[in-house]
C-alpha cells in the first residue's frame, strides 16, 4: 500500500528519529512510504492559541499537499486530532466552505499511527523486538479526540522481549497543552511532576507515547531531573527487530 507520511513539524525539526522509525516500520511491513515535501505544519498551535486566521494557510497547505493520497499517516495523536476536528472548522469560520469540504475529505483519510496499523493495515504484531522495561502514556488527544482506545497497547504487548508495565493515572494529562506549557508554565509543571512521579514508580527504562509533543514535555522533565528514564515514541519501539534493533538516541 502507498502511504503518505505527514511527519509533523515537531518530529521533522526536533525529533527526526520518530519520522525515520515510522518509515522503517511501514517499509518493513511491505508498504511504500511517500513524503510530500511541500508539507509543513498542521496549524494546531495557532488554532489552540486563538490564531485561526494565521492557521488558514497551513490548513490549505495540508489539504493541497495530501489531497492526492488515499492513506495518510502521522505519528501524532494531537496533529491528527487537529486535522480531523479543527481544519474544516477553521476554514468555515473564515468563510472558505470549499476548503472546509476538501479538508473534511482529506481528514477522513488521515490516520494516527496506531489507527493505521490496527484498523487499516490490520496488524497488531508488527514483528518488533524491544527488550526493555517500558510504560506507556496514552496522550489526551489520542484517547479523547481520536478514541484510539487500547490500540497502542495491543501493539506494545505484541512486541517481543518487551517488559511492559502499566502507568498509574495514565489517562491524566502530562501538562503540555501546546502554548499552555508557556502561558501557564507553573500549572503545566505541577501536572508534569505528577506524571513523572507515576512514570518513575514503574521502574521503567522508557516512557513511551504516540506524540512527540507530550514526549518533549515528559522527557524534558525527566532529563532535567537526571532520572535516567528516557522517552521513546511508539514508532521507535515498533521499528526495531532482533536482526536490526532500533537504537534510541538519547535526546538530540
Amino acid at each position: 500500500m502507498q502511504i503518505a507520511l505527514f511527519v509533523t513539524c515537531l518530529a521533522d525539526t526536533i525529533f527526526p528519529d520518530v519520522g525515520m522509525a515510522t518509515v522503517r516500520l511501514l517499509e518493513r511491513l511491505g508498504h511504500r512510504v511517500v513524503f510530500p515535501t511541500a508539507q509543513t505544519c498542521c496549524g494546531q498551535m495557532h488554532v489552540n492559541t486563538g490564531y485561526q486566521r494565521e492557521a488558514i494557510p497551513l490548513v490549505r497547505r495540508y489539504v493541497d499537499g495530501f489531497e492526492p493520497f488515499d492513506v495518510i499517516v502521522a505519528p501524532s495523536g494531537s496533529c491528527i486530532g487537529s486535522i480531523r476536528h479543527q481544519h474544516a472548522m477553521v476554514a468555515r469560520n473564515f468563510g472558505d466552505d470549499a476548503l472546509a469540504a476538501r479538508a473534511e475529505r482529506v481528514a477522513e483519510r488521515s490516520y494516527e499511527l496506531s489507527e493505521l496499523l490496527v484498523d487499516v493495515l490490520g496488524v497488531t504484531d508488527v514483528g518488533a523486538h524491544f527488550p526493555h522495561r517500558v510504560t506507556y502514556h496514552p496522550t489526551c488527544h489520542s484517547l479523547r479526540m481520536l478514541r484510539v482506545g487500547d490500540r497502542p497497547l495491543q501493539l506494545l504487548r505484541a512486541v517481543a522481549g518487551i517488559d511492559f508495565v502499566e502507568l498509574a493515572d495514565a489517562d491524566e494529562c502530562c501538562g503540555f497543552g501546546g502554548t499552555f506549557a508557556l502561558k501557564n508554565a507553573d500549572v503545566s509543571t505541577a501536572m508534569l511532576a505528577d506524571k513523572m512521579r507515576n512514570v518513575l514508580s514503574t521502574d521503567a527504562e522508557y516512557a513511551a507515547a504516540s506524540d512527540a509533543s507530550c514526549l518533549m514535555q515528559i522527557g524534558g522533565g525527566l532529563s532535567r531531573l537526571r532520572t535516567g528514564v528516557r522517552t521513546v515514541h511508539l514508532a521507535q519501539v515498533l521499528a526495531g527487530t532482533v536482526d536490526r534493533p532500533w537504537e534510541v538516541a538519547s535526546w538530540s
Binding site: G220, S223, R224, S252
Partner: peptide, 12 residues
C-alpha cells in the same frame, strides 16, 4: 518559561 522546569533537546 519552558526551560525553567524542563530541558529541551538540541535541534538535530
Amino acid at each position: 518559561a519552558w526551560t525553567a522546569s524542563r530541558d529541551l533537546p538540541a535541534p538535530p
